[in-house]
Amino acid sequence: MTELLSVPILPLILTLAAFQVGRVLQARFRSPFLNPILIAVILVLAFLFATGMPVAEYQLGMGSISWLLTPATICLAIPMYEQFQVLKKNLPMILAGVVAGSLSCMAMVVCTGLFLRFHPLLTVSLLPKSITTAIGVALTEMSDGMPGITTAAIIFTGILGSILGPVLCKLFHLTDPVAQGVAFGTAAHVIGTAKATELNALSGAVSSLSLVVAGLLTAVVFPLITAML
């Protein structure tokens, strides 16, 4: 058993298998709570706990594919370019919504962090909560924050946005499909975009553009805020 734990590819196989379980469960029950990342994390943690494999060793094993995150993030430019062509006419309205939403989100996290006296690194790690994990984790790592907290906060945000989105559209009287797309993409990144696509194809397209713009905008503002904390 202990020899098996030292197989270098074991963490990768474990992760892929756990993720696959999550995907099958989500396809079967269609609940936003059954997020494949969430399920994979729970299963991996259970495995590490049961076998006593250190987290560091697991992450070392994942290093063989973790580097793919940078090229994968860069590829977000491709859907962004495609939506950009389609949504040219609505672009100023989309950008204004994303800027207003992203800035108020960050302002709220900073103010709450200061008011409740969070550890500065905790505030830093929560700051990219509404943007895509790809850019969010890179930002947190750059500022010596905690990527685990960032990823958890981002997934939680996405699940909340996906569940509450349709209700929030009614609450805020968002009837315009472009406005709905901006709301889903800015507040709840990829997980929200999946929900927006279910509601309306145009909302889904706007949402996938908004999530990349929100990520880029946050990346630019992020260092200015962390410098003040």
Partner: peptide, 27 residues
């Protein structure tokens, strides 16, 4: 290739998310 890479992106988030156990005491 871009569609493939963005498609597998979610799997790549499992590893950073697992490190939350190391920060558990702080949160």
């Amino acid at each position: 290739a871009g569609a493939f890479l963005t498609g597998i992106m979610s799997v790549l988030f499992v590893s950073p998310a697992v490190s939350i156990v190391s920060n558990w005491e702080l949160i």
